[in-house]
């Protein structure tokens, strides 16, 4: 069942001081679908995600969310961070319970923590400290913490970019399964085009700074059937790369200029 929100981005722009980061962005993230934001470095993907999640106020335009919130939802718009953002002084279970413990009874909290730990394969690590876990396991805890609040919309900011390639592939499959099962609206920022075609129902290609919507591609295939070697997806990935390549090269040169 798709229980997610519809997020409507209308004419959003943002500037940091004198630098225009985003300009005239209008998009709709449909309930239960995965919208993937891709584009060259510095195009404003994370800024746009921050605005969509209410963590950053846009300097122009609005973001509206419309839809039914499940009764057990504790945080409608929920982030998963690139750097995991786990509290090192809390165990795995403690991190997952961070929001639940003040809002649910002790029994309900324990039950929900146990449920999401089982869902993310973390049950036997419930009492481990984050420092004892690998990067992939830490990100699973980040996912478990996000799922524990029963979000109506998940916002993932390059959640796999800090991980090695093998862990990334494994987690990508798990993400696809978890997102399908949860049925929440998902906005996923990545610079990895293989992730984009594996997860996205809607792939939004942003131009280099100031970020504008360059293209919106739809992939109407269930996430469960998408494999890394699927020729259609490989072709789509190559198509995306052709769109981004020139902008990425210019963005890289601009970065070198700024650095020097």
């Amino acid at each position: 069942m798709n229980t997610g929100l519809r997020l409507t981005v209308d004419g959003v722009g943002h500037h940091y001081g004198g630098m225009q980061a985003l300009s005239g962005i209008s998009l709709v993230a449909e309930p239960g679908e995965v919208m993937v934001l891709v584009g060259p470095s510095g195009c404003g993907k994370s800024t746009l995600l921050g605005i969509m999640g209410g963590m950053l106020a846009p300097t122009e335009g609005t973001v509206r969310c419309v839809g039914e919130i499940p009764p057990d939802c504790l945080n409608p718009l929920t982030y998963v961070f690139q750097d995991f953002s786990l509290l090192p002084w809390r165990t795995v279970a403690g991190n997952v319970a961070l929001v639940l413990e003040d809002r649910l009874s002790r029994a309900d909290c324990s039950a929900r923590v146990a449920e999401v730990l089982a869902l993310t394969g973390l049950t036997e690590f419930a009492r481990a400290w984050p420092r004892q876990l690998s990067g992939g396991m830490r990100q699973r805890v980040g996912i478990a913490r996000a799922l524990a609040v029963r979000p109506a919309c998940l916002l993932l900011d390059e959640p796999l970019s800090a991980l090695d390639a093998q862990t990334r592939d494994l987690l990508l499959e798990e993400f696809a399964a978890l997102i399908t099962q949860a049925g929440t609206t998902t906005v996923y920022v990545t610079h990895n085009l293989a992730e984009a075609v594996r997860l996205g129902h809607q792939i939004v290609v942003l131009s280099r700074r100031p970020g504008q919507v360059r293209e919106v591609l739809r992939v109407d295939r269930p996430l469960a059937g998408r494999g890394a070697a699927d020729p259609d997806l490989v072709a789509l990935e190559q198509c995306l790369w052709r769109m981004i390549r020139d902008d990425a090269a210019v963005a890289e040169r601009e970065r070198i200029d700024v650095a020097s």
């Binding site: 963590m55 504790l74 929920t78 750097d83 961070l98 913490r145």
Partner: peptide
């Protein structure tokens, strides 16, 4: 700051 931002994002 990332941890505080995380807390804010979860509505604490």
């Amino acid at each position: 700051r990332g941890l505080i931002r995380m807390g804010q994002s979860f509505g604490l």
